[in-house]
Simulated scan of single mutants.
Amino acid sequence: DIMQALSLLLKPEGILVKNELYMEQMAEIFHYSLQIHYPYVPVICSQCLILGSHKIDFLYDTLTEHDYSTPNLYIRQLADIDDRHEYVHDYRRNSTAIHLCKEEDAPEEPEPVDQKRSPGILMIVEAEDATLDLSDTDNVVQALVTALVDAGLTKVSTFTYEHPKRSLLGIVLEQGYITARVWPEHKYVGMDLHMWSSFDLQDAAKAALVKALGSDANEESSSQYRIVAGGMFGTPTWKEDTKKCGPIVTETCETPAEPPVRATVMETKIHTSVLEEAIQLIPEESYTIAVVCGSDASACTSLDIVRKDKTATKVLPLTPCEGISDGHSYEE
Rank of each mutant, 00 (worst) to 15 (best):
M3F: 14
L6F: 12
L9P: 01
N19L: 10
M23V: 05
M23A: 08
E24S: 07
E24R: 03
Q25T: 07
Q25E: 13
M26N: 02
I29K: 08
I29Y: 03
F30N: 04
S33T: 15
I36M: 10
I36W: 05
H37T: 00
Y40N: 03
P42G: 14
I44R: 11
S46H: 11
S46Q: 06
L49E: 04
G52F: 05
S53D: 02
S53H: 09
L63C: 11
T64F: 02
D67P: 01
Y68G: 14
S69C: 10
N72G: 02
Y74P: 01
D80Q: 13
D80G: 02
D83T: 12
R84K: 15
E86S: 15
V88F: 15
Y91F: 15
S95H: 11
T96P: 10
A97C: 14
I98D: 06
H99R: 14
C101D: 01
C101A: 13
K102T: 08
K102Q: 09
E103P: 04
E103W: 07
D105S: 15
E111L: 15
P112I: 07
V113I: 15
Q115T: 05
K116S: 07
R117N: 03
P119Q: 01
G120P: 02
I121H: 00
A127M: 11
A127R: 02
E128Q: 12
A130V: 12
L132Q: 11
D133F: 04
L134Y: 10
T137W: 01
V140Y: 13
V149W: 00
D150G: 04
D150Y: 03
L153N: 02
T158D: 08
T160R: 08
T160A: 11
Y161M: 09
Y161L: 11
K165Q: 11
K165D: 13
S167N: 09
Q175Y: 13
Q175A: 15
Y177S: 13
I178V: 14
T179N: 06
P184C: 15
Y188M: 05
V189W: 12
G190P: 00
M191H: 12
H194A: 07
M195A: 06
M195P: 02
W196M: 04
S197A: 08
L201W: 03
D203R: 10
A208W: 04
A212T: 09
A212M: 09
L213Q: 05
S221C: 09
S221L: 01
Y225T: 05
I227G: 04
G230W: 14
P236D: 12
T237Q: 00
W238K: 06
K239M: 03
K239Y: 00
V249M: 02
P260R: 01
R262C: 01
A263H: 09
K269N: 06
K269S: 03
L275F: 07
L281T: 13
I282F: 10
I282N: 06
E284I: 01
T288D: 10
T288G: 13
T288S: 14
T288I: 13
A290S: 11
G294W: 14
S295H: 05
D296P: 03
A297G: 00
A299M: 08
S302I: 00
D304V: 04
K310W: 09
T311A: 08
T319H: 02
P320F: 07
S329L: 13
